Measured scan of single mutants.
Amino acid sequence: KKYKIKVYVKDKKTKKWKKIKEIEVDTKEEALEAIKKLPPNYEVKIVP
């Protein structure tokens, strides 16, 4: 079972969220580790 991490950042001009990358991992633990490495201003969604 794979997890997709969708990473969004808020556009300063439009104030809208835009997706900047998608990370695919195998476990939820890996997903949480990957999220920890991202800057705090990123919004993250984990999709099972």
Rank of each mutant, 00 (worst) to 15 (best):
10 K>R: 14
39 P>K: 07
38 L>P: 02
45 K>Y: 13
34 A>P: 00
20 I>A: 03
39 P>R: 10
24 E>A: 08
19 K>C: 11
31 A>H: 01
5 I>A: 01
33 E>V: 09
11 D>Q: 05
12 K>M: 09
25 V>L: 05
15 K>F: 04
29 E>P: 03
44 V>W: 15
19 K>Y: 10
19 K>Q: 11
16 K>S: 04
19 K>W: 08
44 V>S: 07
29 E>M: 11
5 I>E: 00
11 D>R: 05
16 K>D: 03
40 P>S: 12
9 V>C: 05
27 T>G: 07
32 L>Y: 14
31 A>R: 01
9 V>Q: 08
35 I>P: 00
35 I>H: 02
32 L>I: 11
21 K>N: 12
18 K>F: 10
41 N>Q: 11
27 T>L: 03
1 K>P: 10
30 E>F: 03
2 K>V: 07
31 A>I: 14
45 K>F: 13
35 I>A: 09
31 A>T: 04
34 A>C: 12
2 K>E: 04
47 V>F: 12
14 T>D: 04
48 P>G: 09
11 D>M: 06
7 V>Q: 00
4 K>Y: 08
21 K>F: 14
15 K>H: 13
25 V>Q: 01
28 K>V: 14
28 K>E: 08
36 K>S: 13
15 K>A: 08
40 P>T: 07
30 E>K: 07
17 W>Q: 01
39 P>C: 06
32 L>P: 01
40 P>H: 12
44 V>I: 12
37 K>S: 13
26 D>C: 09
36 K>R: 13
45 K>T: 12
5 I>Y: 06
11 D>I: 06
4 K>P: 00
19 K>E: 05
26 D>H: 09
2 K>A: 11
44 V>A: 13
36 K>L: 10
22 E>T: 10
16 K>A: 06
14 T>V: 03
21 K>Y: 15
18 K>I: 14
31 A>M: 14
6 K>N: 10
16 K>H: 06
13 K>C: 09
48 P>L: 15
36 K>T: 08
29 E>I: 09
14 T>P: 01
36 K>Y: 05
43 E>W: 15
34 A>V: 15
48 P>N: 10
43 E>V: 15
13 K>F: 10
3 Y>A: 01
31 A>L: 13
42 Y>G: 03
24 E>H: 13
2 K>S: 10
40 P>G: 12
46 I>F: 06
6 K>H: 14
4 K>M: 13
36 K>D: 07
7 V>W: 04
38 L>R: 02
33 E>W: 03
10 K>G: 02
44 V>M: 06
11 D>A: 05
33 E>N: 10
35 I>K: 04
18 K>Y: 13
22 E>W: 02
7 V>S: 01
8 Y>A: 00
38 L>N: 01
47 V>S: 10
48 P>W: 12
4 K>A: 05
37 K>I: 07
46 I>V: 11
5 I>R: 00
38 L>W: 12
16 K>Q: 07
34 A>G: 02
9 V>P: 00
39 P>S: 12
35 I>Q: 04
23 I>Q: 03
11 D>W: 04
8 Y>M: 02
26 D>G: 09
14 T>E: 04
27 T>K: 02
29 E>K: 08
14 T>C: 04
16 K>R: 11
20 I>K: 04
6 K>S: 13
43 E>I: 15
23 I>D: 02
32 L>D: 09
24 E>G: 09
33 E>Y: 04
3 Y>L: 06
20 I>C: 05
2 K>F: 09
5 I>K: 01
23 I>A: 02
29 E>L: 10
26 D>F: 10
26 D>K: 08
45 K>P: 01
34 A>H: 12
9 V>E: 07
13 K>I: 12
34 A>S: 06
33 E>G: 05
40 P>V: 10
5 I>W: 03
36 K>A: 08
11 D>K: 04
35 I>E: 01
40 P>Q: 11
42 Y>A: 11
25 V>D: 00
18 K>S: 05
47 V>Q: 07
24 E>R: 06
32 L>F: 13
46 I>P: 01
39 P>I: 07
2 K>G: 11
3 Y>D: 00
13 K>R: 13
25 V>C: 11
21 K>M: 15
7 V>Y: 05
42 Y>V: 13
33 E>A: 11
31 A>S: 03
34 A>Y: 15
42 Y>E: 03
1 K>G: 13
8 Y>N: 00
30 E>V: 03
38 L>Y: 12
24 E>T: 11
5 I>P: 00
33 E>R: 11
42 Y>H: 08
35 I>L: 09
28 K>W: 15
22 E>L: 04
40 P>E: 07
22 E>S: 04
34 A>K: 09
9 V>D: 04
4 K>H: 07
2 K>H: 12
32 L>H: 09
30 E>R: 04
26 D>V: 05
22 E>K: 01
28 K>H: 14
17 W>S: 01
43 E>A: 15
21 K>I: 14
33 E>C: 08
39 P>Y: 09
1 K>F: 14
19 K>R: 04
25 V>I: 06
48 P>Y: 12
17 W>T: 01
29 E>F: 09
6 K>F: 15
22 E>F: 03
23 I>G: 01
3 Y>S: 01
16 K>N: 05
17 W>C: 04
10 K>T: 04
1 K>D: 07
35 I>M: 08
26 D>P: 04
40 P>R: 10
12 K>R: 09
27 T>R: 02
46 I>T: 03
23 I>F: 14
47 V>P: 02
4 K>S: 07
18 K>R: 13
27 T>H: 03
8 Y>K: 00
17 W>N: 01
8 Y>H: 00
34 A>I: 15
14 T>G: 07
12 K>E: 13
42 Y>S: 07
35 I>T: 04
33 E>T: 11
42 Y>Q: 06
36 K>C: 10
4 K>E: 02
34 A>D: 02
32 L>W: 14
45 K>Q: 11
8 Y>I: 01
44 V>F: 13
18 K>V: 13
13 K>T: 08
44 V>N: 02
48 P>C: 15
4 K>T: 13
30 E>M: 08
9 V>N: 04
5 I>F: 06
14 T>Q: 05
7 V>N: 00
6 K>A: 10
2 K>D: 03
12 K>N: 11
48 P>F: 13
29 E>R: 09
1 K>W: 10
27 T>P: 01
6 K>Q: 12
38 L>K: 02
42 Y>N: 04
42 Y>W: 13
15 K>N: 12
31 A>Y: 07
17 W>D: 00
2 K>P: 06
8 Y>T: 00
23 I>C: 09
17 W>H: 02
13 K>S: 07
4 K>Q: 05
14 T>M: 06
36 K>W: 04
10 K>S: 03
10 K>D: 01
48 P>T: 14
25 V>Y: 12
22 E>I: 06
5 I>G: 00
25 V>T: 06
12 K>V: 11
37 K>T: 10
22 E>Y: 03
21 K>E: 11
32 L>M: 13
